[in-house]
Amino acid sequence: MSRTIACEDRDFVAWRGGADHALIWGVLVDTDEVRAAVDSARAHWADVLLPRYDRQPHVTVGYGGPVPKAGAAPEDPPYTPERIAAARATIRGLGIEPFRLAIGGWGTFRMTPYLCVEAPELDALADALGENRRRPYVPHVTIGHYGVEVPLDEVAARAAAWCPPSIEPITVTGVTLLRYDAADIAGPLTAVETVAF
């Protein structure tokens, strides 16, 4: 039987290799309704989650990598200005126009539970930015990290008793490059730039 993976709220020193920050491409969905749904889910599953998750609601569509730093040796290739420029051109080349995405329902990976997200444009962005090459892409808004190891079936069974706040479809007008502190697995995101549709 599959079980959750208990995460640790700590600095993963070997992974970041001295890098201070890392970058992802994402769609920000930091609205009152989405925050209320995340807060509601965190309260419902509080006993199995790490106590802290400070990242704003967002849907990742591409992992960039660590921000280059002299002397750093992270496990992942640094996300250089040249790679950012190539990703920016790729996003613009897709010709995506503003679109609406739906958020609702509960799902889970082994390390993190999430709110389900639907919009075909997200899959196109993930394909273009390489997210599908890392793992099968599942658009989602992360609720937090599991802090204990328990059977996934037991965690999932509790979704039937959860009544999430309703969320109106959200209009997406661009993709944002987001930075986070590489030493903090649950720290906030900072917007670096947005590629508008």
Rank of each mutant, 00 (worst) to 15 (best):
S2I: 15
T4W: 04
T4S: 15
T4K: 07
T4F: 09
E8K: 13
R10G: 12
R10I: 14
D11N: 15
A14D: 06
W15V: 12
R16T: 01
G17W: 03
A19K: 00
H21M: 08
A22V: 14
D32Y: 09
R35W: 12
A36R: 05
A37N: 10
V38L: 11
R42Y: 01
A43K: 13
W45Y: 15
A46M: 05
A46R: 09
D47C: 07
L49W: 04
L50Q: 14
P51F: 02
D54W: 08
P57A: 13
H58L: 06
V59H: 01
Y63I: 13
G65T: 09
V67C: 04
V67P: 00
K69W: 02
P74Q: 03
P74C: 02
P77R: 12
P78V: 11
T80S: 12
T80M: 10
P81Y: 09
P81N: 08
I84T: 11
I84V: 15
A85I: 04
A86W: 03
A86F: 05
A87G: 04
A87N: 13
A89W: 08
T90C: 11
I91S: 09
R92V: 14
L94P: 04
L94G: 02
G95T: 09
I96E: 04
E97R: 15
P98K: 02
F99I: 07
R100A: 03
R100D: 10
R100W: 03
I103C: 02
I103Y: 01
I103N: 00
I103V: 15
G107F: 03
T108W: 03
F109S: 07
F109Q: 03
R110V: 06
C116A: 13
V117D: 04
E118F: 03
A119I: 03
L122G: 06
A126K: 00
L129P: 07
L129T: 05
N132V: 14
R133A: 13
R135W: 11
P136E: 12
P136G: 09
Y137R: 07
Y137E: 07
H140G: 06
V141W: 05
V141I: 09
V141G: 00
I143G: 03
Y146N: 12
G147E: 12
V148Y: 06
E149N: 08
V150C: 07
V150M: 07
P151S: 02
P151A: 02
L152F: 04
L152Q: 15
V155K: 08
V155L: 13
A156W: 13
A159F: 01
A160G: 04
W162T: 09
P165Q: 12
P165V: 12
P165I: 11
E168K: 15
I170C: 06
T171W: 11
T171R: 15
V172K: 00
G174E: 02
V175A: 11
T176I: 05
T176M: 06
Y180I: 06
D181S: 10
D184V: 03
I185T: 08
A186P: 02
P188M: 09
L189C: 06
